[in-house]
Design a protein around this nucleic acid. Sequence first.
RNA 1: GCCGAUGUAGCUCAGGGGUAGAGCGUCUCCUUGGUAAGGAGAAGGUCCUGGGUUCGACUCCCAGCAUCGGCUCCA
Length: 662
Amino acid sequence: MSEINVQLKNGAQAALPAPVTVAEALKRLDRETAKKALAARVNGREVDLAYTLEPNGDAKIEIEPVLPQTLEGLDVLRHSTAHLLAAALLDLFPGTKLGIGPALLEDPRYGFFYDVIAPRALTEEDLPVIEKRMRDIAKRNLAYRRDEISKAEALRIFDERDEPLKRELIDEKAGEVVSIYYIDGSPFVDFCLGPHVPNTNRLKAFKLLSLSGAYWKGDAANTQMQRIYGTAFFTQEELDAWLKQREEAERRDHRRIGRELDLFSIQESYGQGLVFWHPKGALVRKAMEDYLHEELVRRSYTFVYTPHIARRELWQLSGHEQNYGDSMFAPTKIEETEFRLKPMNCPFHIGIYRSQQRSYRDLPQRYAEMGTVYRAELSGTLHGLLRVRGFTVDDAHLFCTPEQVRREIDDCVDFADQVLRTFGFDKIKYELSVKGSDTSKHYLGSDEDWVKAEAALAEALDARNISYERIEGEAAFYGPKIDFKIEDAIGRLWQLGTVQWDFNLPERFDLEYIGEDGRAHRPVMVHRALFGSIERFFGVLIEQYAGAFPMWLAPVQVAVLPITDRTDEYAEKVGQELRAAGFRVEVNLRSEKIGAKIRDAQLQKIPFMLVVGDREMEADGVAVRERTKGDIGAMSLEEFKRMARELVERRAITNNSLESGV
RNA sequence: GCCGAUGUAGCUCAGGGGUAGAGCGUCUCCUUGGUAAGGAGAAGGUCCUGGGUUCGACUCCCAGCAUCGGCUCCA
């Protein structure tokens, strides 16, 4: 009988008689850890606790337990819970065909899912029933058991069970040795690498969340399956906390807040995905646009306005009809000429560029426009302000010489960074999408051009010490790009702005400039948007602040609240003075007690409330209440204006002001 | 577009084959109150739309539309 030398990573070691399982070895090495472990890494490879260690000559075998409260542990736990879900489904609905059932760690909305084809359509009412069955199975302390069999044997098993989808996966993915998992005592068996928890009794805190459709292998051409989402944690407390946080996130939903604060609406009778900006939403938009405008001027952009519609031939020339036609509104005919609504602004800015001959001395040309575009998004994808059919892009197109482009990209990245931070988005994700090696995708432009363009984009990011993800094959066919994504309150990533290099349109439109050498050259064209869609940006902003906008963005910045109607007139005077000073003010003259007026203002998330009663009128001052801090004392109106102006000018995110200590 | 759910007052929602309900909001009156809801009264409905079953449909059935949760798509 041989011995095995095992060592806990960074810990105890022992020589144990073979054969020995990971669980037994762990128990010898560290009894406490052994109890907690869900699985383990043996020499770096993830295995079950039931895995039998093989002697490896004299070499030491390193064991590292996979523990609760680690990401790896959570992955194992959720993956195992997905299997439990499948077991419950097979129990309740014999004939269910299993697809895939992975753990989800990246998407904070869920924990795992299982895709299945059930013998009948599942509904939400089934979820509690399925969950109950999962608990019942968990309580039976059933073992997760791994088996390694030949591919032929695996195919036979899944054929026998009539699991065509699993069979397909094995056919495609499996090597000669196939790893399968049973939950002993349940009808469940899966094609799966593991690892899993040793026993269903380890699954205590889980919940099924929702039901949806999902295509087999994510391809709409394939059959649609039903997906059941759930989540799992190590303890009930963690699960409860997560569920609570989820409710909080729902409270931030921009659609709810948009209605409560009367910011915008989308009305069925006017059309899906078309946004109405109500006065208060429009005020926020105005503040956003004013800020952007200021920056555009500072950065030497010029402003243009262009039509919303153009002849169909234009879209054929630009290539939009061929490449993007499905997302465009259908042509409309006027006196035998067909027109289409614009899904993008670029061809129009090009129209301005090529309206005259350009010299290298004229470059760069930087055209900026709040350009409204229309896209025929599928009805099922529409979502509040975040996905709509008509929206406005803070668009700009830069036309420059090849020598100038690096500087332009630098400025775009700097600009984006500044803008997003000003709005309080500090979780920005930068993605550099470059040409992939996939030869089936047709890219325009020479390899040499691509190398240069990708380098220019990467250097611009590097120069600012921005860490970014380089994504191979994600570039558009016409050029590489940098995307800016931010994370919203629910943890969703939203694509906002983009900087895109374009090899395509200058060619298609035969753009030129006359160089120093007196010859015509092709300019470089860069598309650039920072908000992306102003509608979407607004939606994300609403969720970011839960409707409680910073002073400079708040549609109503100050509420003046008289205590009795004796001070109504004084309140009006205060309101007028503030308006004259440029603030957005509401004076609440309702016949309500001060508490009710404060409550109204709080619910409207107005940054400052000015309470004015006899005392304030007497002193010609105001009693200031800040939205989050409450009563911060009386001051003169001048003092308040100074403080408020400072917050607005600084575009402060919070109302903490150094000067006044507010 | 696809799968599932939902659609009742401005909002949030309850209800049930036989004349439509609540809370909040709105309006009017009373109240003049000092930091998150003062009181009373009133108005307000194509119960999503169209068809069917029925003596009778907002309710049951079918279809459509929209919304929600996802999938897919996203130059």
